[in-house]
Structure formats: C-alpha cells, structure tokens
Amino acid sequence: MSSRQRVQQWATFARQWHIFDCKWQNPYESAIAIVKHLKGLHKPIYHPMNDCGDHVICINTKEIALPGNEWTKRAYFHHTGYPGGASWTLAWELHSKDPVMIMKKAIYRRLGNNLQRRYTMQRLHLFPDDNVPKELIENVTSQIRQLRVVPQRIDHIEKDVIDNYPKIMDYPTDYLPKTLK
C-alpha cells in the first residue's frame, strides 16, 4: 500500500463532526436527519457492521418546537422497577426539568433497538444553548441543514425597519386592535 493510498484510507474512515441547530425544529423529524449522520448512512461505504458513523453536535435544544398540542399531550413514561414506580411526565414538564432530554429521547428512539445503539449515542453531543466547549466545536467541519426555516419574530425586528416599511394606510386614531389571546 503506497503512502497515498494509506492516507486516502485514513481520510475515508475518519470520523467527521457535524453541527445541527435545533432552534425551532421538530425533534422527531430532525432525528431522522441526525440519525443518518450518526450511523454513517450518508456514506457510500456504509455497512451495518462498518463503524463509519460520525459525531453530531446538537445546539439550542432548549428552543425546539413541538407540533400541535404535543407540549401538553405527549407523555414520557418511566418505571423505577418497583411496584407503583410508573410515572408519566408531560413534554413541557420534562423540557423544563432537562432541556436536552426530549431531543435525546427522539434520537434514541429513532436509532432502533439494537446493541449498537448505546455506542452510537456516545457520538451525539447535545447542548441546551450555543455554549459548546472549545475542544468539541473546533472539530466541526460540516453543518446539517435545518429542516424548517426559522421564522423572524416581529419583536426582534429593529424599530426603524418597521417604521419605514411601506404601508397602504394608517389606522384611525380611535381604532383598537384585537388583542391576541
């Protein structure tokens, strides 16, 4: 094996580091994209017994968005193993206790039930905000595209941009806008 081929081999099987911004993303849909990179399904050398998965850093898991009424209706089950040890935690409760857990469970579930799952999870790094340790963030070479466009909030737009925005009419002075409930 020439030195060039040897380096090519290293480069092929080297672990890459990806970053994924969870802000305003559905965790259950994002898990599909993240699991693809964790398992190495995006590489043409993939094989179930080939250890070619990559590392993924998920940031801003505190700002995930659940669809519909799932914050109040989705329950996470846990059992301590003792009689009467079952407990159901609602999604909003779990998220307030640990802002990383919903994303983690979504990915863990999507990985499927096999012996490799816990080792694959070790390559996943979750952070509630964008404070990632320097020794992790300096490895990152690629970004996983977000599945949904993050909308811009009107209270984050600067005031002079809103004031100078073209409009077709002014509200009458005695008009009371309907308040949001």
Binding site: L41, H42, K43, P44, I45, Y46, H47
Partner: peptide, 13 residues
C-alpha cells in the same frame, strides 16, 4: 437493500 442504501448516499452527495 445495502446497494440501495449506498447508491442513495452517493446520489445525495
């Protein structure tokens, strides 16, 4: 199935 997975990965690149 494996070939399909690998072609999918190659095409996605």
């Amino acid at each position: 199935e494996l070939w399909k997975q690998r072609i999918t990965a190659g095409a996605a690149q």
